[in-house]
Each structure stands twice: as structure tokens, then as C-alpha cells.
């Protein structure tokens, strides 16, 4: 579904060029859930913006469903770290914003909007304004707004990182359910190993400055997965440990005394 072929991104900073990403090659299959994990400043978000067509790569090539990405596409939806809802629009109207902008027919999609709100447990909140909702509910609205585009690909940029720990886990489990129901291809940027292990089929580990692919880790834990006690605790532990190892390499550990 997504093919990234040697993509690089160099920003022109004040003190010369800054290499954010270098020579990233990656394919994400249709319906796959790919997590991208890395320390802050390793270019995770830049990668997502490249895939979404918000940024033009300074090198390499990115294609979705065989077409080269040059501008944002309607079948690619973003979910950002913050909900980015319009405070004067009701929940329902916020979800319908892409429909209006695409000049699709509103009445047809209204029903779909209600279905999505129902699916994310917001059925009774359709007529409320965003500020009446909790942070987790607001992020659910922004998820619905992404899903109304009927996207082939969903690009999620640390979507749960601004939420409290329990809400974060709740939404992660919910996202897993939505993913298995709709089969959307998802690229999910996160800095949480736990989230990555819960959600992803594969985890791309980026190294920092410039961002390069350190390793791609397969997570072969059967679904549905959960944070609670389950039959695969040992596999979860192994996957988490491997990711920890990759993210916290020796150079970050204090050197033992040599005497």
C-alpha cells in the first residue's frame, strides 16, 4: 500500500542544513498496522508528513497504492497529537468537516458520521461542543473525522500522547478494534513501546539524527491483544524488551568504571 524508496529530508536551518531523515526505505502492506517508534527528534513526524504529502521529500520517492505522493490525498487521513477540533462546531459538524471540504453530499455522510460516533461511544454527544468533552473523547472525535474520509491509509502522529495513561490504554484497545473491523492501513507514530507492542504488526525503530531505520521488528502476538493478563504475556515481554534494547543503546548508559 505504501512504498517508501530511499526517502530523505533535509531542512534548511539557521545554522546550515539539518538532516531529519536519511535514506528511509520501507513498505507497508494493505491493512497492515505499522508503528514507527524512536526517541524524540528522530524524524518520526517528518516521515508521517512525507507519506501524507504535507512535505516534499528532498530525496527519494514515496508512493501510495502505486501513485507517487505529491500532495495530500483524500484517501489518506491524518490524526494529530492534538484533536484540532473547531471549537464552534458541534461534534457531528466537526466530523463532517472533511465532507464539506471535499464537497461531498452531506446528507449521505451524516448517517456515516453517526455510525462512527456510535462506534466510538460518542453517540449521545453528537450535538455537543468540543469543550464539553474530555480530552479522550475529543481525540475520539478527531478519529471519527479521519474515518469519515473512508481512508485507505490512516496516518497517526502520537495521537494518544496528550492523554492520561488510562485513557491512552483505553483508546489504544479501541483503535485495535477499529483497525480489525475496517482493515485500514495505519502508520502510527509513537514513543510508547507499550502502545507499539499492543497495536502493531510490525514496528519500525528509527535511530536519531539523522533518522534512519535501525530495525524493523515483527510483533507476532495473536490478536486481539490487551494490556491486562492474557495468554501471551511472555511474548509481550520479549517484544518490549527487544524494543527497549534498540531504543536505549549502550551509548546512553553510564559507562562502568574502568579500574
Amino acid at each position: 500500500m505504501i512504498t517508501i524508496d530511499g526517502a530523505s529530508q533535509t531542512f534548511r536551518g539557521r545554522s546550515g542544513p539539518v538532516e531529519a531523515l536519511k535514506d528511509i526505505s520501507l513498505t507497508v502492506g494493505a491493512g497492515e498496522f505499522m508503528a514507527v517508534i524512536g526517541r524524540s527528534g528522530c524524524g518520526k513526524s517528518t516521515l508521517l508528513r512525507l507519506i501524507g504529502g504535507l512535505l516534499k521529500p528532498t530525496g527519494g520517492r514515496i508512493a501510495i497504492a502505486g501513485d507517487r505522493v505529491v500532495t495530500p490525498r483524500r484517501d489518506v487521513a491524518f490524526v494529530f497529537q492534538r484533536p484540532a477540533l473547531l471549537p464552534w462546531r458541534t461534534v457531528e459538524d466537526n466530523v463532517l468537516l472533511p465532507v464539506e471540504i471535499f464537497k461531498w453530499r452531506r446528507p449521505q455522510h451524516r448517517e456515516r458520521a453517526w455510525q462512527l460516533l456510535e462506534m466510538t461511544g460518542l453517540g449521545t454527544f453528537a450535538k455537543r461542543l468540543p469543550h464539553e468533552l474530555s480530552g479522550g473523547m475529543q481525540q475520539r472525535v478527531s478519529l471519527c473525522r479521519a474515518l469519515i474520509q473512508n481512508p485507505k491509509v490512516m496516518l497517526m502522529d502520537e495521537p494518544f500522547s496528550a492523554l492520561d495513561a488510562l485513557t491512552r490504554e483505553e483508546l489504544a484497545v479501541e483503535l485495535q478494534r477499529i483497525h480489525s473491523e475496517l482493515g485500514t492501513t495505519i502508520v502510527f507514530v509513537t514513543h510508547s513501546i507499550q502502545e507499539a507492542v499492543l497495536l502493531a504488526d510490525r514496528v519500525t525503530v528509527l535511530s536519531a539524527r539523522p533518522g534512519r531505520i535501525n530495525k524493523i521488528v515483527d510483533v507476532d502476538i495473536p490478536r486481539p491483544r490487551s494490556f491486562g493478563l492474557n495468554a501471551h504475556l511472555d511474548q509481550v515481554a520479549v517484544a518490549s524488551a527487544e524494543l527497549h534494547q534498540l531504543l536505549l543503546t549502550e551509548q546512553h548508559l553510564p559507562t562502568p568504571p574502568t579500574d
Binding site: L54, A77, F80, Q81, A84, L86, L97, P98, I101
Partner: peptide, 25 residues
């Protein structure tokens, strides 16, 4: 806010759409 601009851009909203639906209000 920057995130609303980003949202509008990700939806390929035209200048006018962004102006009317987001910036003006």
C-alpha cells in the same frame, strides 16, 4: 493555531475554504 492549519492542509482545503471555515470564525 498551527494544528488547524495542518488539518486544513491535510484535507487539501482551498485558501478560501480555510479562510471561511477556520480562520474567520
Amino acid at each position: 493555531p498551527a494544528d488547524l492549519h495542518e488539518l486544513a492542509r491535510s484535507l487539501s482545503a482551498s485558501w478560501w475554504q480555510t479562510f471561511v471555515k477556520v480562520r474567520l470564525t
